[in-house]
Design a protein around this nucleic acid. Sequence first.
DNA 1: ACACGCTACTTCGCAATGCGAGGTAGCGTC
DNA 2: GACGCTACCTCGCATTGCGAAGTAGCGTGT
Lengths: 110, 110
Amino acid sequence: MDTTQLLKGVLDLAVLAVLRAEDGYGYDIMRRLRAAGLEEIGDASVYGTLRRLFNAGLLTTYVVPSEEGPHRKYYALNAAGRDQLDRSGKVWRAFASTMDSLLDDRGVAA
Amino acid sequence: MDTTQLLKGVLDLAVLAVLRAEDGYGYDIMRRLRAAGLEEIGDASVYGTLRRLFNAGLLTTYVVPSEEGPHRKYYALNAAGRDQLDRSGKVWRAFASTMDSLLDDRGVAA
DNA sequence: ACACGCTACTTCGCAATGCGAGGTAGCGTC
DNA sequence: GACGCTACCTCGCATTGCGAAGTAGCGTGT
């Protein structure tokens, strides 16, 4: 029902994954995440996550003025960020695999 | 990194899945979850989850005295619990699939 | 001119939840 | 009788996603 709790601890990973493809600013990242399937994501969540990741030293940032609206604060992965993405991705896969085996144990109707 | 945040909102599902296989009491469920791969899970998390699920009307409970130690408080899925397991399982699969596609670098850049 | 809506970022405080720490207790073994 | 395993419970904290609100640039329609 509620994707909120499922996002806990995974939003970091999702944002890192999105940034791997291309640098982005908050509003854009939010749209990309929604387009990817995380449709219920809130903007405050994304901005908060970006801030956390930046404070953790995983991102660099630069501001680009826009003629189509307010300025845009771009974020980009640095080496530590790519490393973290790699490691978190593996943790995620292992975790997801564990959950899948739990669910498949006697077949939740899929 | 930390499986703690990954468990958020999924522990309910994991416990329901374990109980589908067979009735169980807290300590036993904890061991089964650890055996299944969630090795870092704490006992307080399991007991808390069981209480939440019970209060949500998804479980029934009965106490069985044991000659090998303290009494055991068994929990079992009821109809609502099986229903919830079914629905949460689907939500999980959809969510996991979304995350996988993000990590596989599809659905965002493409 | 003014309202509206989209873009874009920020701050505040709340709600949910896993977990550590601590406590109680039965039972067997050394 | 100290230790260790089983088995349960309570308390309070840390993390984190989110809603609500605010600020602000810009374009369109009336």
